[in-house]
Simulated assay, not measured.
Amino acid sequence: MLAFIVNNREMKELEYLIKREMDEILHDLNDSRIDHIVKDAMEDRYQVLFNLLKRFASQSEYSKYVRAKKYKCQKKIK
């Protein structure tokens, strides 16, 4: 178990940074040019960030970032 002490301002900054990174990941998950293997890694990172956000943000704040399901992998069938 690791711990660190942050003040209220630092906590808000961490919350902001995590949310922005999660927004970027959500945006990239909708990009059809990105390979599904990369998207799997992005989903994993998103989950780590979400778990971290739950430690800083209120339930009403982090509930906006709950993922209902993974992205839809659209494979081309030839």
Rank of each mutant, 00 (worst) to 15 (best):
N8P: 06
K64P: 06
Q74I: 12
E43W: 15
I34T: 13
L49I: 08
A3W: 06
L52H: 03
I37S: 13
E10L: 09
M22F: 05
R20A: 10
R33Q: 07
E10A: 10
Q59G: 02
Y71C: 06
K75V: 06
I37E: 12
A57D: 01
E21W: 01
I34E: 02
Q74H: 14
D44L: 15
E15S: 11
K75G: 10
S32L: 12
I5V: 09
R55F: 02
E61P: 12
L2W: 07
R45P: 07
H27N: 05
M11W: 10
R9E: 15
V38R: 14
L49E: 03
I5F: 10
S58D: 04
L53R: 08
L17M: 06
L2G: 02
D23N: 14
I37Q: 14
A68Y: 15
R67L: 08
D23A: 06
L53T: 02
L14T: 06
E13R: 08
A41D: 15
K72R: 14
E10K: 08
K69I: 03
V48I: 07
V6S: 10
Y62S: 01
A41Q: 12
Q59H: 06
S58Q: 10
E13Y: 13
R20Q: 11
A57K: 00
C73L: 15
K64N: 11
L2D: 02
K54R: 07
H36M: 11
I37T: 14
A57Q: 01
M11S: 15
V48R: 05
A3I: 14
V48M: 03
D23I: 00
E10Q: 11
Q47I: 14
V6G: 06
Y65I: 09
N30C: 15
L29H: 03
E61S: 09
F4E: 10
Y16V: 00
I77M: 11
D40S: 12
I25H: 04
Y62A: 00
L53G: 07
Q47V: 14
I5Y: 04
R45M: 15
F56I: 02
Q47R: 15
M42C: 03
C73P: 09
A3R: 00
R55L: 06
E61L: 07
K72G: 05
K64H: 14
M22A: 01
L53I: 00
K76T: 11
E21I: 02
A41F: 08
